[in-house]
């Protein structure tokens, strides 16, 4: 694994994403759902909303880094608000 140049922060980052994926897989099996149409007027399942959340969060973090500077904990707060909004309304 040496060649992959692991660091603790990136390992935690990937662990969080992996556990999110596993959680949503388990949720999808245990509680099958109906896709719904939200404010984007597209049909989404929980998995879709997770994808929108993660992709959007990446851009929020980049924008924060570019405009405000390297204070990612604050960007993460914005991401959480964004995530809540996506899961509530999209």
């Amino acid at each position: 694994m040496d060649w992959m140049a692991w660091t603790w922060p990136t390992a935690i980052f990937f662990a969080v994403i992996a556990s999110l994926l596993i959680t949503f897989t388990v949720l999808a099996i245990k509680f099958p759902e109906t896709p719904r149409t939200g404010i984007l007027r597209i049909e989404t399942t929980r998995g879709d909303r997770l994808f929108i959340t993660l992709l959007g969060s990446a851009f929020i973090n980049l924008a924060w880094l570019g405009i405000v500077g390297a204070q990612q904990p604050y960007a993460l707060i914005v991401c959480l608000i964004y995530a809540a909004a996506v899961f509530r309304w999209v």
Partner: peptide, 13 residues
């Protein structure tokens, strides 16, 4: 996936 993870690791070092 593994190459992409490696790229992420490189990007912070």
């Amino acid at each position: 996936v593994i190459p992409l993870m490696t790229v992420v690791n490189y990007s912070v070092q």
